[in-house]
Amino acid sequence: MKISEIAALLNAEVYTENHDDVTDIRSACSADLMSDVMAFAKENALLLTGLVNPQVIRTAEMMEMKAIIFVRGKKPQQAMIELAEEKKIALLSTEFPLFEASGRLYQNGIRGHGF
């Protein structure tokens, strides 16, 4: 799924413009602990999290992820949006909780790698 398709599926708001909406995203990881994302996740393109701070974007960058979805209606601050634009990482926000958002993506073919 492209980022725009994921946004439509989760009724999510997209905060960035400078991101890749061509790549077919097939895998995701859901976590609030960034160290766990780096310890266990392998080749996932998407991060779902309830944590909102600049280090979430840094973590996604180190893991070469394409997009971050903030769940439970959490929204990124301006400094985070600027950092994400610089790194070409998409930022999305959905009202769905982590379980529900992950489930909807899974139902539509997104899988988890690693663990």
Binding site: M34, A39, Q55
Partner: peptide, 16 residues
């Protein structure tokens, strides 16, 4: 609250 400090840092460094 930043998503760190769960005692995974040094083990994570060792792992990678």
């Amino acid at each position: 609250e930043m998503g760190f400090g769960a005692g995974m840092g040094l083990p994570n460094i060792k792992k990678h």
